[in-house]
Write a protein that binds this DNA or RNA. Structure first.
Lengths: 356, 356
DNA sequence: TTGTACGCGTTATCAG
DNA sequence: CTGATAACGCGTACAA
């Protein structure tokens, strides 16, 4: 292994000068600077990361924690984090918690010791646990959240409420009066955000479901039972499940019922019918989270920056006018569900149909 | 920050004793051992990774290089690597090369300095470049390959030839006589492996295509033009493209033509019709690659271990008998393509139909 | 069994 | 502008 010592010797200077020359520090004669650069290049010198980390205190490494790398949602975020980190000369240490929320704190702590900053993408971690983690002085200003917000750390999330509005507007414009919402995990920040917008737009809430294909299959039957002609899903995976179940039961999409997803993962555009969905800038969120890490040196009790990225409805083939023959008559006159006053939002696994 | 020094002081012993106690080394009195453990626990001591790395020479970190984290194929491998690394107490540094083969060597070198071992998943890196990387003494026994083989490093790959055989047998059993193969990237190891099996089973080779949805769309028309009633694809993404194009052109799947994919990525089971595909144990490959790293201390010119994992055809809904009415008559009598002697395999981007 | 002291490769401080 | 030299936190010969 070639060390700085070797470079210094070859260049005929001291260790200190060699170090300064290579780190572009001032107080080095142009001549020496060049000699050192030359020697370093010809010897193929590469600084020892651990040694450097020991003295400087910074590792040149970022950490990323996700529940599941194989989930296209997190994969996209990871890709963004990775790209931005590399652009800024840093590497990224990833930890896949495999959806195990209980193991998360330990994993985060362990990772935290080895990195300069941490990007957390843990939708399911309870708020208290998250707060405790963020309270540790070591974490101060060194962690950024994605797809979730907290008073204790900067974050990059999405304008999900607006996404819901765009989707519902789209559906209403197509003449759908009874649209159902297939919710995501109960305590999840992002599901709450979606529901917030739902409160303003009279939708049949089917309850909470696992954010998977299976969850969608389960929800599809409920949506049909509720007489919905359009269903808005927590995410694309769920929407795909709904699509599959609908197809299996012989109801045509989008002729009989329209389906809208969330996230716009790659698979959304590959299925038939291609999924209408709310596109969310996942990779961009990852990139911006990295940038937030750098500028997060909040001295004292400055409120952490919260970025909320815009989302955009992508209309594809899974949505269509409610009924071609009725396309330009007045809608809303034949709603089948009884009008009820807005109740508290049901977030039980046992779906319950209410009008909101 | 709490250092070993603090622990030693709190336990009333020297640094050396504290160090030994914590690393389960011998020559420590039970009493002291306990005192140290207690002190460490109460102080919340966590060894400084960089300091440890500096003295021991090992970082407790593994590296993983993939072309695209968002590709479900690599995501699955990454997940396996991650899981196994964590089980063995190590972290993993991932590098997404973003399909940029030219940048790969640098990325690998950079990463190589920061890790104890490297798992390489670079299907497109030219053999010479790979050889050069592996020739570096620093790489000796510290890198394992996934989905690719070389004489210079251990590897975990798949029995792709057998997969092709299983797929073709399945198709033949269903009465298909004209089956087309949609190839992957020309120089790719795994495409070569598939083609090796094709040489034995008379198939219409459509040539090489980009391993994407678009590649499949492009190939579908060619398959139709070639009069194929069944098409075997390089991977699931391509197969999905074929499916989509077929659907768009009004040819029914699997009634008119059967489609088989490769890899069994999650999306394969989510589409309609669900894709018949050759399942490949991606995550397992990732895990085993990690294990190969550990035992790869090959002193001298021992030949590196090559593991080849079994694959399995998963029959779903995208394949069916060629023609229900002819299901039990003798097949092969009405092949439309002219019989030609096996020629060299066309691997140009300009597809060329040949009988093999 | 225990403690002292040195070294790992760099950066940073402080005289020259 | 330059060069000794002291950390950084830990592991480990070596001596006690």
């Amino acid at each position: 292994m070639v060390t700085l010592r070797d470079v210094a010797r070859a260049a005929g200077v001291s260790l200190a000068t060699a170090s300064r020359a290579l780190s572009d520090a001032p107080h080095v004669s142009p001549a020496n600077r060049e000699q050192v650069a030359l020697a370093a290049a010809s010897l193929g010198y590469r600084p020892h990361p651990a040694a450097r980390a020991l003295t400087t205190g910074s590792t040149g490494t970022l950490g990323l924690v996700v529940p599941d790398l194989a989930n296209p949602f997190f994969a996209a975020v990871a890709k963004g984090v990775q790209a931005r980190a590399h652009e800024t000369g840093r590497d990224v240490l990833v930890a896949d918690t495999d959806e195990d929320v209980t193991a998360e704190p330990d994993i985060i702590t362990r990772l935290g010791d080895r990195v300069d900053g941490l990007v957390l993408c843990s939708p399911r971690l309870p708020a208290e646990a998250l707060g405790a983690l963020l309270a540790a002085p070591a974490a101060d200003g060194r962690v950024a959240l994605v797809n979730r917000e907290t008073p204790f750390a900067p974050s990059v999330s999405f304008d999900l409420s607006d996404g819901v509005r765009q989707a519902v507007d789209h559906l209403r414009a197509l003449g759908h009066t009874t649209v159902a919402y297939v919710g995501g995990p109960a305590g999840s920040w992002s599901d709450g955000e979606r529901r917030q917008a739902l409160a303003e737009v009279a939708v049949v809430d089917l309850g909470s479901f696992r954010p998977t294909h299976g969850g969608g299959v389960q929800a599809a039957d409920l949506a049909l039972a509720a007489g919905a002609t359009a269903v808005l899903c927590f995410n694309d995976l769920v929407a795909l499940g709904v699509l599959a179940r609908l197809h299996a039961r012989g109801v045509a999409t989008p002729a009989d019922v329209s389906v809208v997803g969330f996230d716009d993962v790659p698979a959304a555009s590959l299925v038939t019918p291609a999924l209408t969905t709310v596109a969310v800038p996942l990779a961009r969120a990852g990139r911006e989270a990295v940038d937030l890490l750098a500028g997060a040196a909040r001295g004292g009790d400055v409120v952490p920056e919260r970025r909320r990225l815009p989302v955009e409805l992508v209309v594809r083939a899974s949505t269509a006018p409610r009924d071609p023959r009725l396309a330009d008559t007045t809608p809303g006159s034949s709603a089948t569900a009884p009008a009820t006053s807005p109740a508290t939002i049901p977030r039980t696994a046992d779906p319950e149909v209410v009008i909101r």
